[in-house]
Amino acid sequence: MSTLPKPRGPLSEALLAALASGHTDLAHVDPDSPEDAALSLWVLHELSYRGYDAVDDRLEHDPGLVRLRGRLEDDLERRLRECWPGRPAYDEGFAEAFFAWVAADDGPSLARHVQREATADQVVELVQHRSLYTLKEADPFTFALPRLPAPVRAALAELQYDEYGGGRPERLHAHLFAEGMAALGLDATGCGYVDEAPLEVLEQNNAMSLFGLNRRLRGASMGHLAAFEAVSSLPSRQVAQGLDRLGLPAEIRAYYEEHVEADAVHEQVAVRMICEPLIAAEPDLEDDVWFGAWCCLDLEARLARHLLAKWEAA
């Protein structure tokens, strides 16, 4: 169970009051900033993951809150689609085109910063930000599982089985991260670091939930997954090297070391055994596969620019 965050404006304030009272008509309340909107959507999505101690679980499907969620999701999706440059043209097979497109991405890299020059405080801050997703690593994509054609379902289940520890809870990736957080002296119990999360982190999480929770966006969810896996194994090694350079605990390094090998497998599975057969079975989803993949890289680049600029200024 999560604890509720602090409000960031009139909408999140009204939403927190609605969650406490059960009076959920928020149709006439508007956010006064992107943070206010993003935090509100994050709070609503969390009802579908872990819920809150102090909130009635039935509110997950309360009509007033579902309407607000739809309004905020539509706005996020519209903003993302407006920036999306569109699906790249390609002649080779999908997998080759996808890996080439990822390789051509020249966004700023937090992993390289951690490897070479980050301070221990910056790494701790980054771990806090990552924890919003990583403590529920893989979960947004599991929502898409029953909505996919049979061969794709089998491949996604196989990938997720590895994310969830292959039947061994102590190997669950979210658990490895929680152990790393605890070794750093951080709170890994619920979602202790939402209040610290900048807009970019909230939107990263909101996009993954938007794609996973809405069946019509299953293509975007799988494209996002494939891009996430395809930019993980080499960067995970860079992060592990940075943690080693800083003498940070072995537990947090173990999480990143696991992802060097795991994601070298997952990227192949996600691209060749999930996205490619999904597009073959449902060609209309191809645009969304590329759209979801682009969102993954773009939202990460936005976070990297934000944090690197902030650290540089300090």
């Binding site: 890996f99 390789a103 194994s233 080499l234 090694r237 060097v260 090998e261 070298a264 990227e267």
Partner: peptide
């Protein structure tokens, strides 16, 4: 990480 792939081929 041989014998395992670590993405270096890319």
């Amino acid at each position: 990480s041989r014998p395992w792939c670590d993405g270096t081929h890319k």
